[in-house]
Simulated assay, not measured.
Amino acid sequence: MSVEYHQLTTTEARELGAAGGVVVVPIGATEQHGPHLPLGTDFIMAHTVATRAAEQVEGVLVTPPIWTGFSPHHMQFAGTVSLRTNTLMAVIRDVAESLWHHGIRRILFLNGHGGNANMLGAAAQSLRFESQVRIAVASYWNFATEKIATWRQSPLGGINHACEMETSLMLAAHGEQVHAEKATNTPHVVSNPYLGNDLLGAGAVATPWDFTEITTDGTLGHPELATAERGEDLLTAITQGVVDFLSDFKNWDWQDPQTIIGRDDAR
């Protein structure tokens, strides 16, 4: 049975809401990923993870991906398409409110682009406290951070953008779109102790950078370490993490937060 939300009829969509179904909305970006990865890497991988996970959990459907995101920091590189902050926030809100209107009460926005993360969090808060709409938001790599820490072969600075991780995942899932021979070793080395330099090496202070300030070809990391075999290993771990969450998410009851957060029987 297909897990593609857009293949439902209107009758089936009504039944999905009544049955307490889960809808995953993949969201990514269309932006440069160095000379070796396609512009759509972020939304392609978010959709790939979402689909693989939904196929393993009954009652979960996946919408078509939101293919553009917040990418002004990549606009100096050809091919990038970026939404304004207000536009992206409006898209997230409108999609969530539409699904909620039709009875979907378990909505996960699964993100594949770091530039979207803060706005997804802000949109979730706005929806909750201004519209009484509840959503969950997460970036797909957050479901496997422990795995990534032991999986990686690069030092800190090696997993950032079009890097060891993204290149391996794309080689595993969509290898025909990868030009591995064009990948360049461009680690992100930061000596300032307050700033982060890696997916797993966040600093105490965050500040935005234009990518032209920190890389010449759009790559940040060690894509030369990527292989399809390693990518499949990591993709399996990420997918399992999402499967575990979706299995739990199916039972969330927004009307009784303690069933989600956990009860303190000692009180």
Rank of each mutant, 00 (worst) to 15 (best):
H6R: 09
L8I: 12
R14Y: 04
L16T: 09
L16G: 09
A19G: 03
G21L: 01
E31Q: 13
G34I: 06
P35K: 01
G40Y: 00
M45I: 10
T51V: 13
Q56E: 12
Q56D: 08
I66D: 00
T68E: 01
F77T: 07
F77P: 05
F77D: 06
A78R: 10
S82H: 03
T85Y: 14
T87E: 11
T87P: 04
L88G: 01
M89C: 01
M89S: 05
I92K: 00
W100S: 14
H101Q: 13
N116V: 07
A117L: 13
M119R: 05
S126E: 15
F129C: 03
E130T: 12
S131A: 15
W141H: 07
W141V: 07
T145C: 03
E146A: 11
I148N: 04
R152Y: 00
A162N: 07
E164P: 04
E166D: 13
L171M: 14
L171Y: 05
A173G: 06
H174E: 05
Q177M: 15
H179P: 00
T184M: 04
T186R: 14
T186Q: 12
P187W: 12
V189R: 11
Y194L: 15
D198F: 07
L199T: 08
L200A: 11
G201R: 09
I214S: 01
G218F: 02
T219V: 13
G221C: 05
P223H: 10
E224F: 01
A228S: 11
G231W: 04
L234W: 04
L235A: 12
I238K: 01
I238P: 01
V243D: 11
L246C: 09
S247M: 02
K250A: 14
R263K: 09
A266S: 15
